[in-house]
């Protein structure tokens, strides 16, 4: 029995037009299709600019999809992210798709612990219970307890990234998008993150990520997608519309 996909990209296209830079148009995807399955890890590879982060952001709806569909299983339903209404996107982001970006977007005056447990509170978890869970995860990621109540504004890059990771792993999601989550971590914390990824895979989460270290690939990847950058000719096309 083949397990059914949880996420299906069909014929998607994406370009960027820079209206104030001579209308340069960069095509990143054209007719790209792929299916992703529960409990499997897919690593996106390819050189810088090949569209790895772009693909994750399109799945998370941070980038608008130019053409094609991105269908996701949301409970009993199939939802096309490329065409979904905003209220549906909020719901998907709350329950179905988690995303760990390359950098934490720090909010002044909000403590590290509160930053981490926000996804749980969004699901109406009891705050005391959420804090308990958050503290356990921060401990696992070696954030000293005297820092939990400080805003992450003054934290180092590695510390901020661990706060970001804790926020990403605190609530279970059927799909988890990871954009270079281990880039600024030392060996010990990297080990912890890889363990967290393996645990979430065991919980049947579909993990899609960008990882640069081949060691990470060997640890948990089921598939890799090599995004070959389009040739210059394919990629750079004159913009049809004029600013």
């Amino acid at each position: 029995m083949t397990p059914h996909w949880i996420l299906s990209l069909d014929g998607i296209g994406k370009d960027f037009v820079f209206h104030h830079q001579q209308g340069t148009r960069i095509v990143v995807f054209e007719q790209f299709s792929h299916q992703f399955y529960p409990g499997s890890a897919t690593i996106l590879t390819g050189s810088s600019g090949a569209g790895k982060s772009t693909l994750l952001r399109m799945i998370y709806a941070t980038y608008k999809t130019g053409s094609g569909s991105i269908r996701v299983r949301h409970g009993e339903d199939l939802v096309d992210i490329a065409a979904a209404r905003p209220a549906m996107i909020y719901t998907l982001r709350k329950h179905t798709i988690g995303y760990v970006s390359q950098f934490l977007r720090v909010v002044p005056r909000v403590s590290a612990l509160d930053t981490v447990i926000e996804p749980l509170l969004a699901r109406n978890m009891d705050p005391a219970q959420a804090r308990k869970k958050g503290k356990a995860l921060l401990e696992r990621l070696n954030i000293p307890s005297n820092m939990w109540h400080l805003s992450a504004t003054t934290f180092s890059g590695g510390e901020q990234q661990r706060i970001n990771l804790a926020r990403g792993f605190i609530a279970p999601f059927p799909i988890l998008l990871l954009d270079e989550p281990t880039a600024s971590l030392d060996l010990k914390n990297r080990r912890t993150v890889i363990d967290l990824i393996k645990e979430t895979l065991a919980d049947n989460t579909c993990v899609i990520g960008v990882f640069h270290d081949p060691a990470d690939h060997r640890e948990f990847a089921d598939h890799t997608i090599d995004l070959a950058p389009m040739t210059n000719q394919e990629m750079m096309q004159p913009c049809p519309e004029k600013d």
């Binding site: 820079f18 209206h19 104030h20 709806a61 941070t62 980038y63 608008k64 905003p86 996107i89 909020y90």
Partner: peptide, 30 residues
């Protein structure tokens, strides 16, 4: 949650806040 971008009295672009700020499509929004 969402943003509307206005220019000269009209809405020129709208979308989720992160879409507008991270992937602006219209010349004025860019």
């Amino acid at each position: 949650h969402r943003l509307y971008v206005m220019k000269q009295g009209k809405i020129v672009e709208s979308g989720l806040s992160d879409q507008i700020l991270d992937d602006p499509r219209q010349p004025y929004t860019q």
